[in-house]
Amino acid sequence: MIVLGLTGSIGMGKSATAKMFAEAGVPVHDSDEAVHRLYAGKAAPLIEAAFPGVTVAGVVDRTKLGGKVLGDPAALKRLEAIVHPLVRADADAFLERYRAAGVPLAVLDIPLLFETGGRDRVDKVVVVSAAPEIQRERVLARPGMSEDKLAAILARQVPDAEKKRLTDFVIDTSRGFDAARADVASIIHRLIGDAALAGDKAPPSRR
């Protein structure tokens, strides 16, 4: 099975592109979705122990947690040391289920793939990109976002130009959904040709 890493900076259209791979029949593991599940499950007591007062009814409250870690690099590293191994284990279990089912291609949607050293976990990488002005417009339209927050987020991410230099494929979402969907189909064909995708032989899509 080929493991394709999907990544891209904030506002580039990565989530929409991940849905296009899923719609084409490719199993996709969403790291952000995994974090949400873990925050309501096995990660919650570990995070509460490290940052007392951040859970409500056994579930991590992201606002409370943000107040503890944002702007504090040491606290953020402590949080990442708890969460990243759990997300990776979740992704590994996902891959094993589809590998056992004989599926030829699976996607790991990893927002910080290059930043967290995830390149060695995948066979190929696709970077989702967009023109800087479109990226900025998309991000600043989000509730609670500001110029300062955007600048802080981008400062933690590998620059888009560098990601594109390091990747195997680029999908430019500036050209619209139809063009992006065509790029997704082209990448799938280049990687596995006409091989059958998940279809009926895939295991349940739990992650």
Rank of each mutant, 00 (worst) to 15 (best):
M145T: 10
A179T: 15
A179F: 12
E162K: 11
F177A: 13
A196G: 11
F169G: 11
L150H: 01
I153H: 08
K164Y: 02
L197E: 00
I188R: 05
D200P: 09
I153K: 07
S186Y: 07
R175D: 02
L197S: 00
A180Y: 05
S146H: 00
R175A: 03
I192P: 09
M145I: 09
F177S: 13
A180I: 00
G199H: 08
L154K: 11
S174N: 02
R181M: 07
R165E: 06
L166P: 10
A180S: 14
G176I: 05
T167S: 15
H189F: 14
L191G: 07
A161K: 04
I171R: 14
S146I: 08
R175T: 03
D200G: 14
D200N: 14
I153M: 14
I192K: 11
D148C: 02
F169V: 01
T167A: 15
V158T: 13
L150A: 01
D194G: 10
A180C: 10
G176K: 13
V158I: 15
L191T: 02
Q157I: 07
A185F: 05
K201I: 14
A179E: 15
K149V: 09
K149M: 12
L166C: 13
S174L: 00
E147L: 03
D178W: 09
A152Q: 13
A198M: 09
K164G: 02
Q157Y: 12
R181D: 11
I187W: 10
I187H: 05
L150R: 00
D200C: 07
D200Y: 06
H189E: 12
T173I: 01
S186A: 15
G144Q: 06
L154Q: 12
P159N: 01
G176S: 02
A161L: 08
H189L: 05
I192Y: 12
G199W: 05
R181H: 13
D183H: 09
D200F: 07
D160V: 00
D200T: 11
K163Y: 01
G176H: 02
F177I: 14
G176Q: 01
D168W: 03
V170G: 12
A185T: 00
T173Y: 05
I188A: 06
A182W: 06
L150G: 00
R190H: 10
D178E: 15
A195T: 07
R156K: 15
T173K: 04
D172L: 07
R190E: 13
P143I: 14
K201Q: 11
R190L: 10
D172Q: 12
K163S: 01
G199Q: 09
K164R: 15
K164S: 00
I192H: 13
K163C: 02
L154C: 08
V158N: 08
I187K: 02
